[in-house]
Structures are given as structure tokens and as C-alpha cells.
Design a protein around this nucleic acid. Sequence first.
DNA 1: AATTAAATTATCAAATAATGATAATATCTT
DNA 2: AAGATATTATCATTATTTGATAATTTAATT
Lengths: 260, 260
Amino acid sequence: MSGFQRYKKILDLFSEERSSWTVLEISKSLKTPTSTIYRIVREMVTAEFLESASGSYFRLGPAFIKFNRIINFSDPLVRAGQPFLKKLANENPITSVNVLARLYGNNVMCVADYKSPSFKKNTSYQRGKLMPLIYGATSRAIIIQITGKRLENLINLENFKSDEDKTNFLKELKSDRKKGYCFTEGQVDKGLIGFAVSISNKKLGIVASLSSIFNLDDFLLEHEPIIYANLTTYGLLVEKYINEIFDDIQKYHHETKSIR
Amino acid sequence: MSGFQRYKKILDLFSEERSSWTVLEISKSLKTPTSTIYRIVREMVTAEFLESASGSYFRLGPAFIKFNRIINFSDPLVRAGQPFLKKLANENPITSVNVLARLYGNNVMCVADYKSPSFKKNTSYQRGKLMPLIYGATSRAIIIQITGKRLENLINLENFKSDEDKTNFLKELKSDRKKGYCFTEGQVDKGLIGFAVSISNKKLGIVASLSSIFNLDDFLLEHEPIIYANLTTYGLLVEKYINEIFDDIQKYHHETKSIR
DNA sequence: AATTAAATTATCAAATAATGATAATATCTT
DNA sequence: AAGATATTATCATTATTTGATAATTTAATT
């Protein structure tokens, strides 16, 4: 354990399911002496990346809230896409969850979401949530943008039930890439269906998707064209805004550079 | 520069105003050779705490979104308070911004906020935003909970305009502590007024506040009793829920411990 | 397509920091 | 107030970071 890994390994223990740990537990889990863990934890508490809770437990610290906010106000994808999610929800013919997602390591992460107030079910689509790479339209519209060696590497990390499943997946990937949009049914949450389009910006290295998730029970075939029309329109709008934001950033950096 | 500081110093460069940096810029700013910064930045990119953007710029990475989400779903204060903010907004007699805030290092940080849809002005009260310690009711209701040496240290870090200002502040602090609630006018944003009550939980180490912010123009004296009644009621409710969540956590840890 | 500039990675000896076993305090519990 | 648990301090040993420089890759320009 060295470098940033040393800290990351501790942070990675914290999850929604298990959000507080004692030094002893961390020590056992990482097979590292308590004296070492105490030292590292203390450092991270000072930096507000951890904070001490009651009963000698520690939990994630407020630094994450702070930096998350900065991302919210500055990340081009979030900035460009966030404001459209509500509009998309309002224009969809039935109640929906609308999601901006992007590639995060070997997974897909939701970076913004808007649920219509009338949408009842709890869904897996919430900001910050990691989604499986090979299931759901949200992820599909992202992975169709990846090709060659990179795609191969990503796919090889996944556990398909069978070789047939894998070939099927690759086949669907190919056809969806041609179509330019994706549809899946019940792959992430039972009873839900998803529609998605790709969002990308080469210069900014953005590989993302915009998707709408509906209750299967609400869905009628006649809704389909409207759903696709909405997604395509807003997808293009988001890409346009990303470009504008990119230009702003360029300009800003140019200015601050010439001042010096 | 050693330990976690090494990484933190780089992260601390990133702000809402300046959200992307090149290695060269970081290197100059921290007076550290580029080769060293390249190595550290690479580590943090691997860990997804930074990510490379276009034009050899780097920005904050998605790890913050992920951990922020975990906090959202697990932090007792956020979990307990978040759901009440909307209710509080709906029950307030005039349009409002409602905020949960807590002590963060030597500042106050907003950890959850809900703005009535009809509230027009942009305010400083947004989740993740650091607030000044000595201005605004939101902060006041927090700092009145602090006493003795700790208070002295915090106060000494602040720049008061004059010694008179300082004595006044301390006097107000004392009287607000007695009253149990706070009111300020235009201290953070011009044209806005704030009301706040304290939220605390000793066992969990929570030192926080619940506040409602209004447009001065909307405000009539007859609103005051309702505003205070709402804040007090919801403040107590939040504290009650924090306690319940605390008990849940206790129980959970007890179970997982006995399983082992 | 070739050339040049800029960005990024690799190398390695010297300097510095982390480790972990143990001892010393501090804090909480009963 | 005693006992248990949590946390900090110490320090010789071991391991890692540093930063100047060279090598390589990538992007920009001609």
C-alpha cells in the first residue's frame, strides 16, 4: 500500500450499506496494524475526508460535499445537461426518470437525474450511483461509443452468463450503434424500460448518455416516437451546450493566461 | 508536503471559479517540480479523484460524485433533515430557501437545501457551499452551540472590522443562545433575511442548524410567529430523526459484530 | 508527411517519510 | 475509582518520494 492508494483503500471501504467503520475494523479489513491506520485516519480527518462519529466510528467527511458542489457548478456535462432533465421529464408522454450518465472507470455512473414527481417506484438511477456496464439502455448508449481494444478490455472484465449471451450482446451493440439509440427492458430494475441516446464530446473527453426510464405498465407503443424525438432533440441540445461551455472555458483560460 | 496533504493541496486548487488546471499551472502554484506533479496527478487520475480534460487540463474526478452520494444516503444529519426541507418550505407563509448547515473546519457548510420553486433570487445557500462563520442566521445558530476555548479559537480566526464589531457580535451571540433562535438581515445576501434554530446531537458529534431565508420585501411582521413555530417544530423533528437513525446504526453495528 | 513544440513518462541516486511493535496517555464504562 | 477501550507518541528499520534529466509520446504547425 503506497501513495494515494493508501488513502483510497480506506475510503473504498465506505459504502451506502456500511457507512461507518472503526479503526479496528479498517485495520482488520486491510490487514494493516492499527497504529498505521490510526495515523492515516487522523490525517484524513484533518483534511475533512473522514470525520469521527460516535462510538469510535468514522464516516466520510464533508470534503466530498464541497468538491461535489464544485463539480456540479463546473463539470461541462453536468452543467450542460442538468437543466434539461426536468424539461425532458415534462415533455415525455408518461411519468419518467431521466438520467445523464458517463463512463466511470469500468462502470457507468449516473451524474445527474430528475424523476417526475408522480414516478412512484424506487429506481437504481440516482446521481452518483454506479451502473452495470452491460445492462440497461443508459449504459448501452455509452458503450456503443467505445470500439477496438478499449471495448475488448471492458467487455473482458464482465461476467456473461454464457458465451451465447456475450455474442448476443455484441450483436445488439452493433445494431444499436447503427441506429444511434438504445432500448432495453427490465435489465436493471424489473418492470422498468429504458430509452437512451449517446452524448459525446471528443475535445472534452466526454463519453456519456441521456436516457429516460419508464414503468413498463404505463408504456404504449404510440409513445415510442415521441420518446425518441424528445431524447434526440435534448441529446443534441446538451451536446450544443457542452460545446458552448467548452468555448467559455477556453476563453477564460486564454484570458487568465495573457494576464500573467 | 507529505502524506495526504500532498494530494489535498492539489485538490484545494480547484474551485468553482477555477475548475481546471494544467500540470504546469499546479506546479507553479505549489512551487513543486513538474515531474513530481505529473506523478501525483497521474495517481489521482487513476483513483478517479481527478480526470484529464481537453488541452492538457485536469479537473475534479467522478469519485467525488460517488462518495457524495454515499454521504447523502448515510449521513445522519442529511438523511434526517433533507426530507423536511420541502415540507418546511411549503408551510412557510412566504417563499423561502431552507437550509441544513453544519460546522466544517473553521467555516459553516450547507449540507442540504430546498428552494421554493417561486423563489426568484440566486442565493449563497446551496449544498456544499461554505458560509462565513460570523454572518447570517444559519451560521449564528451553529456558533451559539460552541463555547469556551473552541469558540475563542474560532473567533480569533475571523477578521472583524473593528473591536466594537467583535464585542457586539459576542453580545448578540449570548442573547441568541438564551433565546434559542437567531435572526439576521442582509448579512450574507443583500435583500434577504434569515431565521435559524440549532440542531445538535452530542453522541453523533453533530453541530448544525436549520434555517429559512426570505426576501425582505415579502416579509411582514405577522409572519414571524409562524416562521419560528415552523423552525422549532421541524428542528425538533430533525433531532428526533437523527436519534432514530443513530439507534439504527447502533443496532446494525451490533448485529454485524455479533455475526463475526 | 515531416518538423517542431509541448506534454507526458521513465530513470535513479539522494533525501525523506512511512511502518509497525511497543509504550504511554486519554477517554469511556460501570 | 478501577478496568477496558481508544488514541497518541516513540523510534529504529524499511520503503517511498523527490526532482533533475533523459527519453518518449502526442499534438500542432508548416
